Amino acid sequence: MSRRRSKAPDRPPPSPHIDAFLDMMIAERGAAANTLESYRRDLEDFSAFTAGRKRAVENASQTHIRGYLKRLSEAGMAPGTSARRLSTLRQFFRFLYQERVRDDDPTAALDSPRQGRRLPKCLSEEEVKRLLETAHARTGPEGLRLVAMLEILYATGLRVSELVGLPLSALSRDGRMLVVRGKGDKERLVPLSEPATDALDAYLAVHEGYVPGRRQGAATGQLFPSRAKQGFLTRARFAQLLNELALEAGIDR
């Protein structure tokens, strides 16, 4: 008597939305090849997890994501790496929400894996160079904005809170100085380096592209506006962009 073979469990086909997300990262954010490969690995790993539960990755629920993060933790993955995986999922599901593939974002209420506090570290000159080179390799409006912000930070030593909150009026007419309002509401003049002014010139050519679509009531006249509720790029979002850039540049900090 022949033994019946067990039928392999049905699994959803690979999601075309992963490719669409990666295409967006190239077109709108100028993501480099190694960054795209990192995103692809993260998303395909999560897709395999949801496939084992007979759920297409684009239809994953918050419960699936929590289960995935729990599995990573049980497998001994470092909290920092798990946080990076969650960052990838946040961007992916935010993309699906913006493209109206989904009517919700299952990552919105999730907290990042807790990480032990690290002592502050300064980047070496070589690491700063790699970070800037990686940023300059990006294309599109978001790449130009990130380069401008990094070049200003490198040239001036501004606090991040000062940088992200700069109004457009802070830039002098010749584009070579910034009027910065710091602690105690005191103003100071900050000169810009030639690389910073060049980066700003390139960014300002696409600056208006960040204004259309801004939410009603958001702040206006910002040097680094965004479509976020605040109307400008937040410190948290800038930190996320820096972490992604450091990963792309191979800097482990």
Rank of each mutant, 00 (worst) to 15 (best):
M1T: 13
R3M: 12
R4K: 12
R4C: 06
A8W: 14
P9N: 12
D10R: 14
P12S: 06
P12Y: 11
H17V: 08
H17Y: 14
A20P: 12
F21S: 02
L22S: 04
L22Q: 04
D23E: 11
R29G: 01
G30V: 08
G30H: 03
A31P: 00
A32L: 11
A33R: 12
L36E: 01
L43M: 02
E44L: 15
E44C: 09
E44D: 13
F46Y: 09
A48Q: 10
A51E: 13
V57L: 08
N59F: 15
S61K: 05
Q62G: 14
H64K: 04
I65C: 03
Y68K: 00
R71A: 15
E74L: 14
G76K: 05
G76Y: 07
M77G: 02
G80M: 00
T81F: 01
R85G: 01
R85C: 07
L86K: 04
S87K: 01
T88L: 00
T88I: 09
R90Q: 13
R90Y: 05
Q91M: 10
Q91F: 07
F93L: 08
F93P: 03
F95T: 06
Q98K: 15
Q98S: 10
Q98N: 11
E99L: 07
R102P: 09
R102D: 14
D103K: 09
A109S: 15
A109I: 10
L110S: 12
D111T: 06
S112A: 12
S112V: 04
S112N: 12
Q115M: 07
R117E: 15
K121T: 03
E126P: 01
V128K: 11
V128Y: 06
T134H: 08
H136D: 11
R138D: 13
T139V: 04
T139M: 00
G140H: 05
G140Y: 05
E142I: 08
G143L: 07
V147T: 13
I152Y: 06
L153G: 00
L153W: 09
L153F: 03
Y154W: 10
G157H: 04
G157M: 06
L158S: 11
V160N: 02
S161Q: 15
V164M: 09
G165H: 13
P167F: 12
L168F: 13
S169F: 08
S172K: 10
S172P: 12
S172T: 10
D174H: 02
M177G: 04
R181Q: 13
G184E: 02
K186G: 02
K186T: 11
A196Q: 04
A202I: 02
Y203S: 03
L204P: 00
H207Y: 08
R215A: 09
R215K: 15
R215T: 10
A218Y: 02
G221D: 10
G221W: 15
Q222D: 01
Q222Y: 13
P225L: 07
S226F: 04
S226M: 04
R227N: 09
Q230R: 13
L233A: 05
L233E: 12
T234A: 11
L242F: 05
N243I: 00
L245S: 03
A249N: 00
I251C: 01
D252G: 01
